[in-house]
């Protein structure tokens, strides 16, 4: 089997400071990889380098494209990368305001990716938008409301719908449940888990919330100071942490 994403020696420095260094891993189709670590450990830098938002200093990001098989994303031209970014890839931001167009209706937000890849039939675009709103549990009657009239949890669900409408194969998530209260978090996680399993998505989830990776991730990568210090199956890493920092991280969680 070909890995969906293969990362080799990815390095990004901000001047003299290290963003992330020598990160390598392989992501298989249908797999969810969690990346945990404290603030400033390089998780978001790594995710942004992978998704093409930041240009890394060294390394390769090899993605198994639909048409041409494995290709180095960093060597692609900008139009190719953009096309990938709105077809096979999706990016869910921590703050829905970064991932949504706040002045455009929910239906327009979901339809944007469709129109960006050439959909030109209003009725079909709208039907697909309505279908996706239903899948993320947003009432159909709200299709013409702007995201600014939505609650935080709804905005996050709308962002997910907007990203998944083109049937991507790889989803990047940056703290998808950050800033939501626990009951909303639980429902959102439930929804994401259901979608990921049903659509057979692969996902890379960056978070500092161990409960999130426990629920979502198959495998876990622990980062500290820009380097990967421990990898393994999620339960294995969380229940039997080896690295001192991982032990600290796991023991820092309050037991309710």
């Amino acid at each position: 089997m070909t890995p969906l994403l293969e990362v080799r020696g990815l390095t990004k420095a901000y001047g003299g400071r290290i963003g992330c260094a020598e990160v390598s891993f392989t992501l298989w189709p249908g797999e969810v990889l969690g990346i945990v670590g404290e603030s400033g450990s390089g998780k978001s830098t790594l995710l942004n380098c992978l998704a093409g938002h930041l240009a890394p200093d060294a390394g390769q990001v090899i993605f198994d494209t639909r048409g041409e098989g494995p290709r180095d994303v960093l060597a692609m031209t900008e139009p190719e990368r953009r096309m990938l970014g709105r077809t096979d890839w999706a990016f869910v931001h921590q703050n829905p305001r970064d991932g949504l167009r706040m002045r455009i209706s929910a239906g327009g937000n979901v339809g944007e990716r469709l129109m960006a890849v050439g959909a030109r039939h209003y009725g079909e675009i709208r039907a697909q938008a309505a279908d996706w709103l239903a899948r993320v549990e947003i009432a159909e009657g709200r299709i013409d409301d702007r995201p600014s009239a939505f609650s935080g949890g709804m905005q996050q669900r709308l962002q997910i719908a907007r990203n998944l409408v083109t049937g991507p194969r790889l989803v990047f998530m940056d703290e998808p449940t950050g800033g939501l209260d626990v009951s909303v978090q639980a429902r959102l996680l439930d929804l994401i888990r259901g979608l990921v399993r049903r659509m057979g998505l692969s996902a890379i989830v960056v978070t500092h919330d161990l409960a999130v990776v426990r629920l979502l991730a198959d495998r876990l990568m622990v980062m500290k100071d820009g380097r990967v210090i421990e990898t393994g199956l999620t339960d294995q890493v969380l229940d039997d942490p080896q690295a001192p920092y991982t032990q600290l991280l796991v023991s820092s969680v309050l037991q309710a």
Partner: peptide
């Protein structure tokens, strides 16, 4: 430059929706 004009249709979509 990249002929990335999907957004223009989003505006027209909004017109029809509203």
């Amino acid at each position: 430059a990249l002929e990335d004009y999907g957004l223009m249709h989003v505006k027209l979509y909004e017109d029809i929706a509203r």
